Structures are given as structure tokens and as C-alpha cells.
Simulated scan of single mutants.
Amino acid sequence: MYGAMKVAIGGPLKLGFRPWVEGLENIPAEGPAILASNHLSFSDSFFLPAVLDRKVTFIAKAEYFTTPGVKGKLTAAFFKGVGQLPVDRSGSRGAGEAAVKSGIDVVERGELFGIYPEGTRSPDGRLYRGKPGGLARVALATGAPVIPVAMIDTEKIQPPGKVLPKLMRPGIRIGKPLDFTRYQGMEHDRFVLRAVTDEVMYEIMKLSGQEYVDMYATAAKRQIADAAKAEAKAKGAKE
């Protein structure tokens, strides 16, 4: 099913948007690896698999598999077709453990595991602090190389509020593999997890050219939402 789904969706994506790619030679032809990417747009999980010869499995939030309507059904079919794994993120600790276990299982099968260390999409195009729980734990538990990936301009294809996507060329830069086997077996040391995550985020920043913000994207989203509410309240008071 993966091959058929990739042809059905990946083919038109490549033909219509013509994404440019640098560093494809850094993806191993076989064997396990972890692809750690920035996260600018929902479409990141479409474009990256589309340009790779190998299957890459991401952890996807469960809502992508349960959203109603035509768009929801198409999204669910795509993610199932390319082997994405749904994880319910409502219970944070349990969800984190499930995601780590799923990632380890993928890597131990000798496959490519994709993860967004920021944990959620960037709210403003900047690169945010990586969460140390998932990426680093999978890397240290398995010894698999971590390959930094930068998605370029994918957020400009369909900005918030726009129904139709803009036909433009997004980019993908794939960096050289990072070896963290020197820390293997230390996946429960929070200082090591932080160091590994920060090293990966630094490489992603160099590849993407994004401004780095030393806070979590989830916190930034809360700040933006609170500011919008305060602005709306002030505007309402004036009127």
C-alpha cells in the first residue's frame, strides 16, 4: 500500500510543486536512521516522504486519523497508507512513552523514523527549542544515527486562513548523520538528553537559516493566543 500511496500523492506533489532537495546522499540506502526535522507546516509530512526513495515513518497525532469530512478521510488514508503511527497526545506522559516505544520499534526494524523535535509546528516560522524526551531517547536507546533535516518555505504554501495552496517550490536540506553512540545507555540522564537535543537543533538551525528561539513552541503559541485575546478584549472595550 505504501508504494501505491506514494505514487498517488507523492507523484503529483513533486510534479506540481517541484520541491528542491539538497543532501539526499546523506540518507542511507538501507539500515536504520532517525530523521529529525523542523516543523513549519502540515505539509512537511507529505513533502519529505515524497522526495525519499525509502519509507519514513513519523509519529502523527491521533486527530489526523479521526478528523471527519472529506479532507479528514483523505488525510487519514494518506497517513495510514504511508505507515504513519497515530499517538494520542491528550495524556502527555503516556503519549510520550508510547511515541518513544513506537520510534524504537521502527528503528529496530531497520527503518527510517521521522520526528519533529519541536513537538509542534512553529507558530511564526522561527525555530524553537527541541523537546528532549523523544528524539534523544530513541537515538540513545538504539544507537541509530540522527540525520538533521530542514524544511524550507513549506509554511508559505498554505498560510493560515488560505483555502487553496500557493504553487511554489519548497525546499528540503538534509544534513550529515550525527553519531551519538558515545552516550548510548544514558537515555535516562536528563542532562545528556538535553545536550543531544540541542546539538541536533543547532544543526537544523544551520541548515534552515531560521532564527532560533530558546523556548518551546507550545509556550510561544500560548503567548500568541493570550496576546490575541488581550488585543480583542482591548478593542472591544474601546468600541
Rank of each mutant, 00 (worst) to 15 (best):
A4Y: 15
A4I: 13
L13F: 02
G16N: 11
W20F: 09
G23R: 04
E25P: 04
I27F: 01
I34L: 08
H39N: 13
S45I: 12
L48Y: 01
A50I: 02
K55N: 10
T57L: 07
F58P: 01
K61A: 08
A62V: 12
T67I: 09
V70H: 11
G72H: 02
A77N: 05
K80H: 14
Q84G: 07
L85S: 12
D88Q: 06
D88H: 07
S90H: 11
A95G: 14
E97L: 14
S102V: 09
D105G: 05
V106T: 07
R109L: 10
R109G: 08
R109S: 11
R109Q: 13
F113I: 01
G119I: 03
P123C: 07
R126G: 02
Y128W: 10
P132C: 09
A139V: 02
A139T: 00
T142I: 07
A144S: 11
M151F: 04
K156W: 09
P159L: 06
P160V: 07
M168V: 12
M168D: 15
R169P: 04
R169H: 09
I172W: 00
I174Y: 00
G175W: 04
R182W: 10
M186E: 15
V192S: 04
R194Q: 11
D198L: 08
V200F: 00
E211M: 06
Y212P: 01
D214M: 02
D226Q: 14
A234S: 08
A234I: 07
G236A: 14
A237K: 15
K238Q: 15
E239P: 12
E239Y: 14
